[in-house]
Simulated scan of single mutants.
Amino acid sequence: MSKQWASKDDGAFKRQVSSFRENICHEHPIYKPAKGRYWLYVSLACPWAHRTLITRALKGLIPIIGVSIVHWHMDEKGWRFLTSEDQEVPFDINKASTINGGIETTNLNEYTPTGHIANDSSRPMIDGTIEPLYIYKRLSDLYYKSNPDYSARFTVPVLWDKETQTIVNNESAEILRMFNSGVFDEFVEDKSSIVVKDLYPTKLQKDIDELNTWIYDNINNGVYKSGFSEKQEVYEKEVTNVFFHLDKVERILHENYKNLETKYGKAEVSKHLDEYFLLNNTLTEVDVRLYTTIVRFDPIYVQHFKCNFTTIRAGYPFIHKWLKNLYWNYDAFGKTTDFNHIKLHYSRSHPRINPLGITPLGPKPDILQMNE
């Protein structure tokens, strides 16, 4: 997720195809699985990068693959890192082996005005982290180190190989599958840290692929096609399509919740939300991929991308219940979600949409409690 403006004369948004598409596996001649060899670069604002961070946590890979976090503000040169000069104390490399790279996440119970925060704010472990391998200032430096002739956009996530000093992959869906594949499982010492054994189980792969296809095109990317539309008629078509498919997700989750009520009784269903997911009572990559869009919907997409037919909390009770369940009951989701990064990035990094760079304070709270 870097410079998003790729509209043509028809006023429609076109997303760039990722450039680095290698895989990590035992059979690969170069990229073999190993502990500490690979490094993940993400933005906490970017939903595509967020899905890899969630999967890293669900699969117990936090001690295996380190993380660096880019600054939330994306300027005309793309993503940047904090520099070593920004650090009051030397950067602790161990913080890269935490669930979200050591970033201090938002306290949801506090009023957090953002007007005093400048785009060049350099609060260590709040606005971002340094790049610890080469002390690079820009994500683009990693792309040029991999390919001096690189000429496309500098997107996150980036999965880096420290041994060959190059990008392995920058396609989030493929990185997610790599982390899930099990090739790193042998290096996970604490097996209890593996929350989900397989996010892409064989018996559900056909259903997962089908859901991923229409959710990606119409919801994940749909909010962007709405927000970056440059003609009224294109916007109206795209935003209507987003909500048509949110309705479809709502029906699926409504049916799944009714099935749980039938199985356990209405009085007991709240005790069994560990079975409340999109497919077959099983947490899969479909939930991961949809979550990163839905958790951003009310705080930013409603106003910034004009996806304002309704909010998730007001208009979609079963999506809302599913969202809160993931956020509050699974650290991999809740502790990798930073609403300050999300709000500041979108509102400050897209001057064609929000030329004054005013960051919304609402909704408050950013996400409701489970019982609300």
Rank of each mutant, 00 (worst) to 15 (best):
S192H: 02
D207L: 10
E186M: 05
Q205R: 15
T282D: 01
A173T: 14
G334S: 08
H50E: 12
W328E: 05
E236M: 10
I99H: 00
D92G: 04
W328I: 04
H73N: 14
G102N: 00
F179P: 07
H341L: 09
T284M: 00
V156N: 02
I175V: 11
Y41H: 13
G115K: 14
N109F: 13
K335E: 12
V183K: 05
I194A: 03
T105E: 03
G128C: 12
R177D: 14
N180G: 04
V242W: 10
L44R: 01
V89Q: 06
P113F: 04
P317F: 01
N100A: 10
G357C: 06
A332E: 10
D198G: 07
G334E: 04
E230K: 15
I175C: 02
H26C: 12
D127S: 13
P157H: 06
P355A: 03
K32F: 13
K59V: 07
E174S: 14
K203C: 11
M125A: 09
F309N: 12
W214T: 06
K32R: 15
T83K: 11
L344V: 06
Q303D: 15
K271Y: 02
V67H: 08
V17L: 13
I252Y: 08
I353Y: 02
D86Y: 03
N147F: 10
A12Y: 09
E186L: 06
Y111N: 08
I24A: 02
K266I: 14
L323Y: 05
L176P: 01
I358Y: 11
I54L: 07
I69G: 06
E261D: 04
N147P: 06
G60N: 11
I194W: 06
E268H: 10
F154P: 05
E88Q: 14
I103A: 00
R313L: 02
S270K: 13
D92L: 01
I69C: 08
W48V: 04
G222I: 00
T337N: 04
K225C: 03
E171I: 09
N281K: 14
N218Y: 13
K258A: 07
Y316N: 04
L273G: 00
P90E: 03
V269K: 06
F297R: 00
N147M: 09
H320L: 04
A12I: 05
R21K: 15
D198P: 06
G315A: 03
K191H: 09
W48N: 04
E268T: 06
E233Q: 09
D331M: 11
P63L: 08
P365T: 09
V223Q: 02
I99Y: 01
G128V: 11
L283R: 00
S43V: 04
D185Q: 08
E268C: 04
I117R: 12
N281W: 01
R51K: 15
S2E: 12
C307A: 12
V67E: 07
F154S: 07
F81I: 11
A49M: 08
F309S: 14
H304R: 00
S84N: 14
Q205F: 00
G182L: 01
M370F: 11
T98A: 01
H345M: 10
I62P: 08
K145R: 15
I117D: 03
E372T: 07
D10R: 03
K271P: 01
V42L: 07
P124I: 14
K59L: 13
D287E: 02
I62L: 13
Y316P: 02
S18E: 15
N212M: 13
N170K: 13
F13M: 11
D207T: 08
L142W: 13
